[in-house]
């Protein structure tokens, strides 16, 4: 393959400069500030700070509540990713089969992605309302069963479903695009060999989706660690009894509500490390099994 090189490095630098500056201003600079704060006790009104070294990390990592927040975040990330990818995959496979009305369906599926997370939270607050929502039918059949205001597991399930719902349409777009780029001749050939619909999905379409699958996996996991704030805030506020206190929500409540800037910065650094590590693992081990065409 032939490659084009810039003879003049200055032009190259100039061309990439805007992007580098943006990354620096919006990522490296705040991230370095967070790392600095995580090593100090910072006064919110800017009256100075005290250097404490790694003490903030020791405090946070020896706090059982923080570990439970990590645990909840991981459960949330894995469950909502699995749910969102599974649902999107099924929906995309069937939309790709061009059954009646699939065009309408395809457009309708994309809309939820345009809804802001807090609005999703509000909508689901109604759906899951134990007294008047759609889920209240559970309580009509078996009273006192569905009560996410006091039951932590149910509250977490609620947040997972809402989080997954928001990701489904995004995933759907990518899966559908990937399915449509699979040459028809392959599926037709499989059909002529006698493979049924499900068989064709399993042996032809899904393996060819692997690169998209991997991309969506990385995006979904990252997204559910860092972008789940709005849903938690409107749906549960982190409760009951911290059952849905995701890491990103805890950062917000400690830092912005509680004015513990150093504690929140420490948690941000840990979260950043965790997301980087997870992404690294995915690229190192999962991507090996992906075959790009």
């Amino acid at each position: 393959m032939r490659r084009a090189y810039f003879k003049n490095n200055w032009i190259a630098a100039l061309v990439v400069a805007p992007q580098l500056i943006i990354i620096f201003v919006f990522f490296y600079w705040p991230a370095s500030q967070a790392i600095y704060w995580s090593l100090t006790l910072e006064q919110p009104w800017g009256g100075g700070n005290t250097w404490v070294g790694l003490e903030n990390f020791r405090t946070v990592l020896s706090d059982p509540v923080y570990w439970s927040s990590i645990r909840v975040s991981i459960i949330f990330a894995l469950a909502s990713t699995a749910l969102a990818m599974g649902m999107a995959m099924i929906l995309a496979l069937f939309a790709d089969r061009q059954l009646t009305g699939y065009r309408l369906y395809r457009v309708g599926m994309i809309w939820p992605y345009a809804i802001a997370a807090p609005a999703v939270g509000l909508a689901f607050r109604f759906v899951f309302n134990p007294n008047a929502g759609l889920f209240s039918f559970i309580n009509t059949i078996a009273p006192e069963t569905w009560n996410p205001t006091l039951n932590g597991t149910q509250a977490l399930i609620m947040v997972i479903i809402a989080g997954a719902w928001k990701l489904v349409s995004y995933n759907f777009i990518f899966f559908l695009a990937a399915l449509q780029s699979i040459p028809r001749s392959l599926t037709e050939a499989a059909a002529m060999d006698g493979a049924g619909v499900l068989r064709r999905m399993r042996d032809v379409q899904l393996p060819l989706l692997a690169p998209t699958f991997f991309f969506i996996l990385v995006i979904n996991i990252t997204d559910s660690f860092t972008d789940s704030f709005g849903i938690v805030d409107t749906l549960t506020g982190g409760g009951p009894a911290r059952a849905t206190d995701l890491m990103v929500y805890k950062i917000y409540s400690d830092g912005f509500r509680g004015f513990d800037y150093s504690g929140a910065a420490t948690q941000s650094v840990i979260l950043m490390g965790l997301v980087i590590a997870l992404t690294f693992i995915q690229f190192r081990y999962v991507e090996r099994r992906v075959h790009y065409t």
């Binding site: 982190g238 409760g239 409540s253 509500r257 509680g258």
Partner: peptide, 16 residues
């Protein structure tokens, strides 16, 4: 504000 939130979370835990 954090102390209030500790209280609320623990009360939730007790009430459930």
């Amino acid at each position: 504000i954090q102390i209030r939130s500790e209280w609320s979370n623990e009360i939730d835990a007790a009430l459930s």
